[in-house]
Design a binder for these strands. Structure first.
Length: 492
RNA sequence: GGCGGCAUAGCCAAGUGGUAAGGCAGCGGUCUGCAAAACCGCUAUUCACCAGUUCGAAUCUGGUUGCCGCCUCCA
């Protein structure tokens, strides 16, 4: 059970060895709260949610810090446009973020610090950097001097000389080097400001993460994550700040998730193709989104399409379908079920997750378990209908044990992936009612028609039964005659 | 201009030296009054192309082509 993680800094997979045995300290860059979350945010948050869940399941004591950037140019601009206070705007989107994440079944981070609540810590780090000669003050603006930090560029793999060649960087003559970045920005009218040794102002973007991670996780910690786009300049700058200020290795393992494309196009505001999370979960089950996102490796790009989402929905239906089948036959999960041997989980699934959180491979293990359990239930059903078979009882006892263990397996895998949070009844009931809403059909009418069809079938009036089924089909309702009774579904 | 990534069946996708997971779709079968669901079987002698290393390569090396990302706010 050795976990290997792809480390962006080293550009290879490495054995994971935390600073302190049995503990993991991890920091993930959260959103700048100036707008609603889109599915790109969802990918990052879900990726690290699964990583945190898995580390906990492996027995680590996990301290997970995910920050909010609640003071920033974008927030100020947006607030000015709307004529409201920037901090009020930030508050609104923080609360929206929480709502979205709850809907997505994202577990709460241990600590969710905000930049504006850590101004003192930020100022302290800037003072250290000035003192050590890594930063300079120009009329109340404090800049970090990238040339002073020897390792600058080591995360993103770029050298200063290369970057200058074709770089598109704003020319600020006051900076010693075009790549020098702001640690502290002097205040302009209408902006939130704090007192500092350099006058009134506000922190730059990168410094908050150096200050807050040090406060909650120490000067060296285990995992730092975020989207690939943050590698440069944000994370490069964080390393420069923290290692210069504290004189220690900042982070041991850097993890970066890939992007979400929409119909093979980069998702961007200018293309107008970004998908807001709370809109999308009106159309798709949040767990289907998680299953979709996790069915590709976290470092690869994923292409969001309705087709891909519908495939995820089919997969989720299949899993819940099995859970429903088991529950109908053996009842809900019992206390005893929770302590069962979960061989597929401990074997295939954990092996996959141990290899750089290979959720796609883990999901394959989940589906294989689903198929195995369905097969067993089929066999059980077959035997029940053939009275000549011997040892029926011992087989069914054995099968029940296996099925219960299989369900425990599936639920354990689901708990890492953050899916299968609902009871199968609720899942399908909700699906039916939202399906009806969309097509504006009345469920009482359906029940009435199904009752009539059951009567017709009892009387072996197949013509009438099929006629009713055809009518329902026209209403986008699908019928399944199961051994336990007739159920219906709404067509996707 | 600089840096980096990717190319596996109809589609999505895992697989970094030992002979191609899983999902979706399709077809055939079992089951069913007929269906649906579920299960079984089939669907890549082959992993963009060329050359090389090796007993052996989708996996390593070199080259070619194509796609994409970052270097500017961005998950």
């Amino acid at each position: 059970m050795t976990l290997r993680i792809y480390n962006t800094l080293k550009r290879k997979k490495e054995l994971f060895e935390p600073v302190e045995d049995g503990r993991v300290r991890m920091y993930v860059c959260g959103p700048t709260v100036y707008d609603s979350c889109h599915i790109g945010h969802a990918r990052s948050v879900v990726t690290f949610d699964v990583i945190a869940r898995y580390l906990k399941a492996k027995g680590f004591d996990v301290t997970y810090v995910r920050n909010f950037t609640d003071v920033d140019d974008k927030i100020i601009n947006r607030a000015n446009q709307l004529g409201i206070d920037p901090l009020t705007l930030a508050e609104k989107y923080i609360s929206e973020f929480h709502d979205d994440m709850e809907a997505l079944h994202v577990e709460k981070a241990t600590i969710e610090p905000r930049a504006t609540e850590h101004i003192d810590g930020i100022i302290k780090v800037i003072e250290m950097l000035i003192e050590k000669g890594f930063a300079y003050n120009i009329n109340g603006d404090v800049y970090y001097s990238v040339e002073k930090f020897e390792g600058y560029g080591k995360l993103s793999g770029r050298r200063m000389e290369d970057m200058e060649a074709g770089a598109r960087v704003d020319i600020d003559k006051r900076k010693h080097n075009p790549f020098d970045f702001a640690l502290w920005k002097s205040s302009k009218p209408g902006e939130p400001t704090w007192d500092s040794p350099w006058g009134k102002g506000r922190p730059g973007w990168h410094i908050e993460c150096s200050a807050m991670s040090a406060e909650y996780l120490g000067e060296t910690f285990d995992i730092h994550g975020g989207g690939k786009d943050l590698i440069f300049p944000h994370h490069e700058n964080e390393i420069a700040q923290s290692e210069a200020a504290f004189g220690k290795t900042f982070v041991r393992y850097w993890i970066h998730n890939g992007f979400v494309n929409i119909n093979q196009e980069k998702m961007s505001k200018s293309l107008g193709n970004f998908i807001v999370l709370k809109e999308m979960i009106k159309h798709y089950h949040p767990e289907a989104l998680r299953l979709f996102l996790l069915s590709k490796h976290y470092r690869s790009p994923v292409d969001f399409t309705d087709k891909a989402m519908n495939e995820a929905v089919s997969g989720l239906d299949k899993i819940y379908g099995l859970l429903e089948r088991i529950e109908k036959q053996f009842g809900p999960v019992s206390g005893k079920d929770k302590t069962r041997n979960t061989t597929a989980f401990q074997g295939q699934f954990c092996l996959a997750m141990d290899d750089d959180f290979n959720t796609a491979l883990g999901i394959a293990a989940l589906f294989e378990t689903v198929r195995n359990m369905n097969r067993l239930l089929d066999e059980l059903q077959k035997r029940a209908h053939s009275p000549q078979l011997q040892n029926k009882n011992s087989f069914s006892q054995d099968a029940e044990d296996k099925v219960r263990s299989g369900r425990a397996d599936i639920l354990k895998m689901g708990a890492i992936l953050g899916i299968l949070n609902e009871s199968p009844e609720d899942y399908f009931a909700k699906k039916r009612s939202t399906g009806l809403e969309k097509k504006s059909i009345d469920s009482e009418m359906i029940d009435k028609m199904i009752k009539e069809r059951i009567e017709a079938r009892k009387a072996k009036n197949w013509a009438r039964a099929d006629q009713i089924r055809d009518q329902l089909d026209e209403m986008n309702i699908i019928i399944e005659d199961r051994p336990e009774g007739t159920i219906w579904k709404v067509k996707a």
